[in-house]
């Protein structure tokens, strides 16, 4: 079992390294670099930049070096915890990302928790009462959830929230807390603002997970061990929760891994619409500006979080699946 964990961990490290290389290459792929884009934007606003100035800027950021050296320098910096400068902001990347990354995680984790909290009981209900009115109703709502684009739902809910519930909409904080230091009141304010984004970001995933849970549980309910459990005289609720539900839980564990990047990358447009201070919109601007340090750091962070999420879901799977524990 320990060997399995170590093997998984080593694989995770190698994967992260591969992600750094890929990230670097992909960001370098488009023609030009940050300096040329920067000069373009300066020129379009009327100011002139000399060739010498441009070269000096390139040298300052190390953009005149060959790719391999640039990569090595970047990696060296990263390993020391220095993520470089966000070129367009002229501020350290760390400063710009810091809070946003935390808020992104808060939003994503709330969306995932909400997804689980809804999908688990509804999936169980839909399977146990297959073809009942409730099952059909949930299926209908679920397909709606999959079919409606996120940003559309965001717009509708924002409108409804503003018009009928007088909710302050957009962003994660009320104006008075925006730049306030962290306090209980601010956390409470965040909690209130979290509901809408969590619902919007979680809905499509919830609908999918309900379908998966329902299908898995329907399979498990037909298996002989369910009859054995009934024949023991257990109450029906206990029979279902202890045996088939336990066996159908695997997709929940594996979602931990892939759901996180799905929520983050799928949330860019929603975040823009809702005005969320998360990394999604930041990544978009950084990519447009070819701000390689900022974009690189964000993509790398997402990559690492995905790998970490997968590692965690492997551990959870091992915990709920004795066969893996024994044979891994």
């Amino acid at each position: 079992m320990l060997a399995y964990i170590i093997r998984r961990f080593l694989l995770a490290v190698i994967t992260v390294w591969a992600i750094t290389v890929l990230t670097f290459v992909i960001i370098q792929l488009p023609p030009g670099d940050f300096v040329s884009i920067y000069i373009n934007s300066l020129q379009s606003s009327g100011s002139q930049v000399s060739f010498g100035q441009a070269e000096a800027m390139r040298a300052q950021y190390g953009l005149d070096q060959p790719m391999t050296i640039q990569y090595a320098r970047w990696m060296g910096m990263m390993l020391q915890g220095d993520f470089g400068m966000a070129l367009a902001w002229n501020k350290p990347v760390k400063e710009i990302i810091g809070d946003r990354l935390v808020l992104t995680m808060v939003v994503s984790i709330s969306a995932i928790m909400l997804t689980w909290m809804i999908a688990l009981p509804v999936g169980i209900y839909s399977a146990v009462r297959q073809y009942s009115f409730g099952d059909y109703a949930f299926t209908f709502i679920g397909f709606l959830g999959i079919a409606i684009p996120n940003f559309m739902l965001a717009l509708i809910l924002m409108y409804v929230g503003y018009k009928y519930f007088n909710m302050s909409i957009g962003g994660l904080f009320s104006p008075e807390f925006e730049n306030a230091p962290w306090s209980l009141a601010k956390a409470g304010d965040l909690g209130k603002h979290l509901i809408l984004p969590a619902v919007i970001l979680g809905l499509a995933g919830t609908a999918q997970l309900i379908r998966i849970m329902r299908a898995n549980l329907l399979d498990e309910l037909r298996k002989p061990y369910v009859v054995t459990a009934r024949a023991k005289g257990l109450a029906e609720t206990r029979v279902i929760l202890k045996y088939p539900v336990r066996a159908a839980l695997n997709p929940f564990a594996s979602t931990v891994g892939y759901y996180f990047p799905y929520v983050v990358s799928g949330s860019i447009i929603v975040s823009l619409v809702l005005g969320l201070p998360t990394v999604g919109p930041l990544l978009l601007t950084a990519l447009v500006a070819q701000d390689m340090f900022l974009a690189g750091t964000i993509v790398l962070m997402l990559g690492i979080l995905t790998v970490f999420g997968t590692f965690v879901s492997d551990l959870i799977l091992m915990w709920i699946e004795p066969r893996m524990r024994m044979e891994g």
């Binding site: 298996k223 009859v227 459990a229 024949a231 005289g233 109450a235 045996y243 709920i320 699946e321």
Partner: peptide
Amino acid sequence: AESRLMRSIRGKDIGLVFQEPMTSFSAHY
């Protein structure tokens, strides 16, 4: 079928063994 009395009979007064020794136990416990 779900009453306390019926459940106290299942497993207590009447035991069941059946065909599939592979799948009639749950692999999770």
